[in-house]
């Protein structure tokens, strides 16, 4: 079997995380290619359904990236998103998908280095976890 390269979806809020990704870009901070960003206006826009669907379609990892606590452009969307992520993590456990495959992270717009660091750490973590059980099951 070829080397496992996880597919990771990163839902990034426009105001902080997506801007931090741009920041990582302009500072040329490297991170693995496995992370694919989907832009949302606020991390609270990320529906539980989007996350679950991503896993159903075969994502190995998903993370939702919002602003730092207290910094949400829409008052408290990021805190709401964090609670939702926790809820979906429990559901993933029920389904039999390791909840560590889903994460909420927070960063400010200026934290390019953190964006790259998070992307790297999460990719490493998922790599260690191996392919998502759903992916394995569909491959059979």
């Amino acid at each position: 079997m070829e080397k496992f390269e996880p597919v990771i979806v990163a839902f990034c809020c426009h105001y902080c995380a997506y801007t931090a990704a741009d920041m990582a870009g302009s500072q040329r901070l490297p991170y693995p290619t496995n992370v694919k960003v989907i832009q949302v206006p606020c991390s609270c826009k990320v529906d539980a359904l989007h996350i679950v669907k991503a896993f159903e379609k075969g994502a190995d990892g998903v993370y939702v990236a919002g602003c730092l606590e207290g910094d949400c452009h829409f008052k408290n969307g990021n805190e709401k998103a964090a609670r939702r992520v926790e809820y979906v993590q429990k559901y993933l456990d029920e389904i039999g998908i390791e909840s560590e495959r889903l994460e909420m992270v927070m960063m400010s717009a200026g934290m390019g280095y953190r964006f790259a660091q998070v992307a790297t750490e999460i990719t490493e973590k998922i790599r260690k976890l191996g392919p998502s059980p759903i992916k394995t099951a569909t491959a059979l």
């Binding site: 539980a48 679950v52 896993f55 998908i97 759903i134 099951a137």
Partner: peptide, 19 residues
């Protein structure tokens, strides 16, 4: 509708896991 979607997806995945 939303919970139906979530459950459908969850069941689908859980069943897939068991083949």
């Amino acid at each position: 509708r939303k919970e139906v979607g979530l459950l459908a997806s969850g069941l689908q995945m859980a069943m897939l896991k068991s083949g």
